[in-house]
Simulated assay, not measured.
Amino acid sequence: MALFDDEPKKKPQPHEIGQDLSLLSIGELSTRIELLRAEIVRLETELEAKGSTRSAAEALFRSL
C-alpha cells in the first residue's frame, strides 16, 4: 500500500476576465460560475452597506 495513492486535489484557479475557457471542463466551468455568483452577492452586499452609510452621512450633514 503506497502512502500517496490519491492524486492531490487541484485547487480551483481564480477566474480571469477574458480568459480562454475552451480548455476548461464542464465541472470547472460550473465551479467558476458558482464562485463568481458568490462573489457578486458579496460585492452587492458591500455596495448596499456603503450606500446606507453614505445615506446616513448625507442625512446628518443635511441637518446641520
Rank of each mutant, 00 (worst) to 15 (best):
R62D: 07
K10R: 11
G18Q: 02
I26G: 03
I17E: 14
Q13M: 03
P12E: 05
L64Q: 12
E44V: 05
E58F: 09
P8G: 10
L36F: 08
E44T: 08
L60H: 12
G18F: 02
E44G: 02
G51I: 11
K50M: 13
S30H: 08
F61K: 07
P12Q: 07
S52Q: 15
G27E: 14
I17P: 04
S25P: 00
S52D: 15
G51H: 14
L64R: 14
R37L: 04
E39K: 07
G51K: 13
A2K: 03
T31K: 06
D5T: 03
E44L: 11
G51D: 12
K10P: 02
L60V: 11
E46H: 05
E48L: 09
I40S: 06
E39L: 06
Q13L: 02
F4H: 11
S55D: 15
Q13P: 00
A57R: 15
P12A: 01
K9H: 09
G27L: 12
R62E: 06
E58Y: 05
E44F: 05
R37Y: 04
K9V: 04
L36Y: 03
S63G: 04
E39A: 09
A56N: 14
G27W: 04
G51Q: 15
E44Q: 13
P8H: 10
S22D: 07
G51L: 10
I33C: 04
E44N: 11
I17Q: 13
L47I: 06
S52H: 15
R54V: 13
T31S: 09
L60R: 14
F4Y: 13
R37T: 05
I17S: 05
L24H: 00
A2Y: 01
A57Y: 12
E46F: 03
Q19R: 01
L29E: 00
L60F: 09
P12V: 02
A2C: 02
D6P: 06
I26R: 11
S30P: 03
S63N: 10
S55P: 04
S52Y: 14
D5H: 08
E16F: 09
T31C: 06
L3V: 03
Q13A: 08
S55L: 13
R62I: 04
L64I: 13
F61A: 06
D20F: 01
V41H: 10
T45E: 14
L60P: 06
S55C: 08
L43M: 13
G51V: 09
F61C: 07
A2Q: 02
D5P: 09
A56P: 02
E46W: 05
F4E: 11
E7C: 12
P8I: 08
A38G: 07
R62W: 03
K50I: 07
D6M: 11
L29P: 00
L21P: 01
L35V: 08
L21Y: 00
P14F: 01
D5K: 10
I33A: 03
L21K: 00
H15V: 03
L43P: 01
R42W: 05
H15F: 05
Q13H: 02
A59E: 15
P14V: 01
E28R: 01
H15K: 04
E46N: 10
G51S: 12
E48I: 07
R42T: 04
S52R: 15
S30Y: 06
K9R: 13
L3K: 06
